[in-house]
Amino acid sequence: MIINKNGLLLVLFLIFFSNFLSAQKDFKNGNGFYKKERQSLQASIHKNFYDKASGYYVVVVDPAKREKKNGYLREYTYIWSLCALYQAANEIEKLEPKAKLMAPLLKIMYDYFKPAPPKPGFSDYIMKLKPGERYYDDNEWIGITALDAYSRTKQKSDLELGKLIYDFIMSGYDQTLGGGIYWKEGSASSKNTCSNGPGVLVALQLYQATKNKAYLDTAIKIFNWTKEKLQAPSTLYYDNIRTKDGSISKPVLSYNTGTMLQANIYLYEITGDKKYLQEANVMADSSLSFFYAHDKFRDGFWFNAVLLRAYQHLLKYNSDKKYILGFKKCLDDALKNNKNEDGLFVGKEGVQSLVEHGGMLEILARYAWIENKYNLSEPNSSLSTVSKK
């Protein structure tokens, strides 16, 4: 068969257009799109952030942008980034139980572990390389993930890690300003939503795992304090309260709202009190309009991942698809406009840090689960389950 030049161009155009339509269909309707994106990002993170020679991850790709602290170069990542990867690994294992990603990460994280009084906990940096400080929120993210994993695997070591984290964070609780947990050990300048909201979650997860009422009592006590001191009129949450004068630092970030939104959902599950579910629905509406109305993420990927945890949890009790679809528009925008040729995400200052990539990895793993269970393309207001044989 002979095809002239114009005919060949037509054939090539039809092939390209067919592939384009197929890709668009995957993008809009699921069909494993987010799973493929997650797999691609996972490989890019390993290639660009993992230092095989040392066995550690680097905090940023560009060596010139790595931080010096107290005269020492922080070549490797802070534990916060590993917290992000650890939660992402848990979400991936929910989809692929044989992946076994969490254990290697936890092994690395124990190089940051500081068994010092008043209670053992994780430092922000590798102990043998001039360690820094112990942050209560860093430890809480680890505890949340370990207890998430325990609910899935019933592995005793995850429960024990959750208990260890609880003991450490409660060493940061006192009655200054009537209660609450400080942001970091050795600093009494502020009590933050980011150290109290996730502290509530650790306590609630421990109650669910053990049915020890002391954990529930603690959770409610810290929850009520945080709500009283740091909730904005919008029902979202401010950043922190200063202990010196009780003044409020008022940035509103998605992760702070996310932990307190999810705390309401857990409290509804545990107590059956509908006021918590009502509050969760109100907060979800407020957060949707504040964070996702313009189809672009207004703060970092990892912060948004924490709020997505609450949205996904809320699906058990509120099937309205608007929260997941509103978030999805921002996710799709980032996938379309913020990736470079290496499959990494860039911002105004170039390639973003490991913690942001860990946050995006968690987001993609969660959407891989969502697209497998729900039909995201339906235009009606209720999220329907995809039929699975």
Results as ranks from 00 to 15, higher is better:
182 Y>C: 03
251 P>Y: 10
199 G>R: 01
218 T>N: 14
183 W>S: 02
221 K>G: 09
251 P>G: 12
240 N>M: 11
192 N>V: 03
174 D>W: 01
198 P>N: 10
210 T>K: 02
185 E>W: 03
243 T>K: 04
211 K>A: 13
178 G>Y: 07
211 K>I: 01
225 W>P: 00
233 P>C: 10
200 V>A: 11
183 W>T: 02
175 Q>M: 12
179 G>D: 11
237 Y>H: 02
225 W>A: 04
229 K>G: 05
215 Y>D: 09
180 G>S: 07
201 L>T: 12
201 L>W: 08
206 L>C: 08
217 D>M: 04
210 T>L: 02
227 K>N: 13
232 A>T: 00
187 S>V: 14
214 A>N: 14
227 K>F: 10
248 I>G: 11
175 Q>I: 08
231 Q>M: 14
192 N>H: 09
249 S>R: 12
186 G>A: 08
210 T>C: 03
221 K>M: 14
173 Y>I: 06
229 K>I: 06
200 V>F: 09
224 N>Q: 13
214 A>M: 11
199 G>S: 14
224 N>V: 04
210 T>V: 01
202 V>L: 05
210 T>Q: 02
241 I>D: 01
249 S>F: 13
172 G>Q: 00
194 C>D: 07
252 V>G: 08
215 Y>M: 06
250 K>M: 12
239 D>C: 05
242 R>N: 14
196 N>H: 00
230 L>W: 05
202 V>N: 05
223 F>S: 05
172 G>E: 01
223 F>Y: 15
233 P>W: 10
215 Y>L: 05
230 L>D: 06
203 A>L: 13
215 Y>E: 07
206 L>M: 07
239 D>R: 03
182 Y>Q: 05
193 T>I: 08
229 K>P: 05
205 Q>P: 05
205 Q>L: 15
245 D>L: 01
201 L>K: 07
231 Q>R: 12
182 Y>W: 12
190 S>A: 13
240 N>K: 12
219 A>W: 04
192 N>S: 09
192 N>F: 02
183 W>H: 10
184 K>I: 03
214 A>S: 15
175 Q>P: 02
203 A>H: 03
239 D>G: 07
234 S>F: 00
228 E>G: 10
196 N>E: 06
242 R>H: 13
194 C>Q: 03
228 E>N: 15
239 D>Q: 02
209 A>S: 15
190 S>P: 00
190 S>R: 13
232 A>Q: 04
192 N>M: 02
214 A>K: 14
216 L>M: 11
236 L>D: 01
241 I>L: 08
252 V>E: 11
200 V>D: 08
219 A>P: 01
174 D>H: 08
219 A>S: 05
174 D>V: 04
244 K>E: 15
192 N>P: 00
200 V>T: 07
182 Y>A: 03
206 L>P: 06
197 G>V: 04
221 K>D: 11
253 L>F: 14
181 I>M: 09
222 I>A: 05
189 S>P: 10
174 D>M: 06
234 S>I: 00
207 Y>F: 15
231 Q>K: 09
174 D>E: 10
186 G>N: 00
204 L>N: 00
186 G>L: 01
179 G>P: 08
238 Y>N: 12
201 L>R: 08
192 N>W: 02
227 K>W: 09
201 L>I: 14
185 E>L: 06
190 S>V: 12
181 I>P: 02
